[in-house]
Design a protein around this nucleic acid. Structure first.
Lengths: 341, 341
DNA sequence: ACTCTTCTTGAAACCGGTTTCAAGAAGTAT
DNA sequence: ATACTTCTTGAAACCGGTTTCAAGAAGAGT
């Protein structure tokens, strides 16, 4: 307390110069071991902590990264995906000694304004952006600003951009081929054209059907926007086509689908099998518990931070990298696999 | 791009001194209107943005506030309360031109470490702390560090501390007296002793019963920890006491309670009425939709930011303030009120 | 023993602003 | 016209670090 500790004060106490203290702090070479020790002793005795602001003004590095979540309020509120991701990134930031700042925006315009503010502030060492919309208007802005950034989820325009994403194509494939493997043929899907993840999962669904020689029936394809309500509406529509099974593109939509099925008096999995995607907490809490494709959101978040940290350190000379996290099918009750044993 | 714009450069272009440019930037008085205009013209023409880091080193103010969420992983993941709160605070921060940094920690020790790091960094103008545990070990640390802070939720030790909270006592009261008003007498509750909100809601429950002259039956009192699972377990226990109605301390726990009731073959509200607290999205999505007490989380978040901003500006001379946000009963189907019309 | 490197170290410049201080200009009261 | 305020303004100090530069000390090579 009392007298503020500055590097100058430490220097005096250790009877060396500011420069030497700085060298010790930053673990630079060329300091005699004894001197280094002496300084370290003073530092630990006094509990000195260098002033980050000053440090960063001088070194042009803030150790602060921003997380920009740009999604409809609907999604941020209702889908546990964002909390889980935020949490993972927050953890990753802490692990990498980075401070995480959070920006949430609901409309594309708002997002763009937020971003302008962020870039103008010049406070951040890098950004993690969640790719909500396909056409990511942010990208040109980011590239112009020359700030390191990593996307979470493949952006529409992925050329030369670092991103981390789940293996959504395989997710759709695994879910669907599990259903074909169980003998189902009339398999519908609730997809989403809101982002590339939706496209990819749909592509996986299609390839699984093709592999089995099952013709793709457009009538069994419905779209949602990742909300529970949209899953409900889409399922109501699909019910009329009488599918034997359905692959729903997210757990949250699957919850809506389950409700539609319940209302229609259809039992899951006896009358219709359901497989979804994400494996967020609601999946296991659902009735019946959902067979779903697990994407390791925590891994995704951490890798994004690590990649960003690396770009920040190395100066992003390296070519853009696309990190795809594997997914895994988690079999529970909604697919009917349990019955078959 | 190219040549970095500094205040010095602007000063040269406008043919004045750095000091004058600074005065214009900060809207200080004592600058001739013509000069002010001339400088502003240069600023807008060049698109100059002052360097925040330098600014804050000199002015000892960062415009960055931290949000410290200290809760079990269970809660952060599963209860939409935290996402909603985070979102509200993020919005409030943006409105007040503050940058929000996020810190999530799961154990008290971890929280303490996080806090130490934050305080040592000296980067933040103030903090918003979610009061998870009752005994808030953080408080002394915070007071010692002499940093402005505001709690969300009344901390166990609230003496002289600024906090914003929902009117939980009234919440418990409204929920319970709604049930007594519907004629129920054997009213159980699933409370929580995890935080003061739980205590307060329980107190409200008790006062509503007392008001009606209904003796409080310890056997009708069960505890949970805000998770869905704990609500499920607590409800299973309560079922044995055959209550006619139950006030559940959070929507998330109510979801678990509903499951327990469904499994026990009890219909809601015909066999047992349920009222809960929070009015988060799952409440309306539940089956049946929950009658619940709405707490305006977005208001709470915004007020916390505003209070903090005010303390930061004014230097926190003013005495500690306790802001209590009103709550409101939202009647849906789980309480059986619909039947009675 | 003498020259050439390589280590250590401190002084001083620097990062880009804000704030203090003093001085000249302008305005007001006598 | 004179003395006193009040406005404007720029020079310079300052915030607390990092980094450059130069110089003295120590080590290596012949």
């Amino acid at each position: 307390m009392s007298n503020k500790l500055t590097i100058q004060r430490i220097a005096e106490l250790a009877d060396v110069s500011k420069a030497t203290v700085s060298r010790v702090l930053n673990e630079y070479p060329h300091v005699r071991p004894e001197v280094r020790e002496k300084v370290q002793k003073v530092i630990s005795e006094t509990g000195y902590q260098p002033n980050n602001i000053a440090r960063l003004l001088a070194s042009d590095r803030s150790s602060i990264i921003g997380l920009v979540i740009s999604a409809s309020a609907q999604m941020v509120f209702n889908d546990p995906y964002f909390p889980a991701l935020t949490e993972a990134i927050s953890r990753g930031a802490a692990d990498n000694n980075l401070i995480l700042s959070l920006f949430v925006s609901y409309t594309e315009k708002q997002g763009r304004d937020t971003l302008s503010g962020i870039l103008a502030a010049g406070l951040f060492d890098g950004l993690i952006i969640t790719a909500d919309h396909k056409g990511d208007a942010f990208i040109s802005q980011l590239q112009e600003a020359d700030i390191p950034f990593v996307f979470i989820g493949r952006p529409g325009e992925a050329e030369g951009i670092n991103y981390v994403d789940a293996d959504n194509v395989n997710g759709g494939y695994l879910a669907t081929s599990h259903l074909t493997g169980l003998g189902y043929c009339r398999i519908g899907t609730i997809a989403s054209d809101q982002n590339t993840a939706g496209d990819d999962r749909l592509a996986g669904y299609q390839s699984a059907l093709e592999e089995r020689g099952i013709a793709i029936d457009e009538a069994l394809l419905a779209f949602g926007d990742y909300t529970l309500e949209s899953g409900y509406v889409a399922m109501k529509e699909l019910i009329r086509r009488k599918p034997e099974a359905v692959f729903v593109g997210s757990d949250t939509m699957a919850l809506g689908a389950l409700r539609a099925l319940r209302e229609a008096g259809l039992r899951v999995p006896q009358d219709i099998a359901v497989v979804s995607h994400d494996d967020l907490p609601p999946a296991i809490q659902a009735d019946p518990p959902l067979t779903t494709v697990r994407q390791q959101i925590s891994t995704t978040g951490q890798m994004a931070v690590e990649k960003l940290a690396q770009i920040i350190m190395t100066g992003k000379a390296s070519p853009a990298q696309h990190i795809i996290n594997p997914v895994k099918l988690i079999v529970r009750e909604s697919c009917g696999a349990a019955q078959l044993n």
